Amino acid sequence: MSATIEPWLREILRCPVCRQELVDGTGPEGGAELQCAGDCEQPGQRRAYRIDGGIPVLLAEEARVFQA
Rank of each mutant, 00 (worst) to 15 (best):
M1K: 11
S2T: 15
S2R: 12
S2Q: 06
S2N: 15
A3I: 06
A3Q: 15
T4P: 04
T4M: 10
I5S: 13
I5H: 08
I5E: 11
I5A: 09
I5D: 14
E6R: 14
E6G: 01
P7L: 12
W8C: 06
W8L: 13
W8G: 10
W8A: 13
W8H: 15
L9Y: 10
R10A: 12
E11F: 12
R14H: 02
R14E: 14
P16D: 11
P16N: 11
V17E: 15
V17W: 09
V17R: 09
V17I: 05
V17D: 14
C18G: 03
C18A: 09
R19S: 05
R19F: 07
Q20D: 15
Q20C: 13
Q20W: 01
E21L: 07
E21F: 09
L22F: 05
L22W: 09
L22K: 13
L22D: 07
L22S: 06
L22N: 14
L22I: 03
V23C: 06
V23T: 07
V23M: 11
D24Y: 04
T26P: 10
P28S: 04
P28F: 13
E29Y: 00
E29H: 08
E29W: 00
G30S: 03
G30R: 10
G31E: 15
A32F: 08
A32H: 02
E33G: 04
E33H: 08
E33T: 05
L34T: 05
L34F: 06
L34Y: 02
L34M: 05
L34K: 09
Q35M: 02
C36L: 08
C36R: 05
C36M: 04
A37P: 04
C40F: 01
E41T: 12
E41S: 11
E41K: 13
E41W: 02
Q42C: 00
P43Y: 02
P43H: 04
P43R: 07
G44R: 08
Q45L: 13
R46H: 14
R47W: 00
A48T: 10
A48M: 08
Y49F: 15
Y49W: 05
R50W: 03
R50E: 09
I51W: 07
I51N: 08
I51M: 14
I51C: 03
D52A: 13
D52N: 04
G53R: 01
G53E: 15
G53L: 13
G53A: 10
G54C: 12
G54T: 03
G54P: 10
G54Q: 10
I55H: 03
I55W: 14
V57T: 14
V57S: 12
V57D: 10
L58S: 05
L58M: 13
L59V: 13
L59F: 06
E61G: 01
E61P: 00
E62V: 07
E62Q: 15
E62K: 13
A63R: 00
A63G: 01
R64E: 04
R64F: 04
R64Q: 06
V65M: 00
F66E: 00
F66M: 01
Q67Y: 01
Q67H: 14
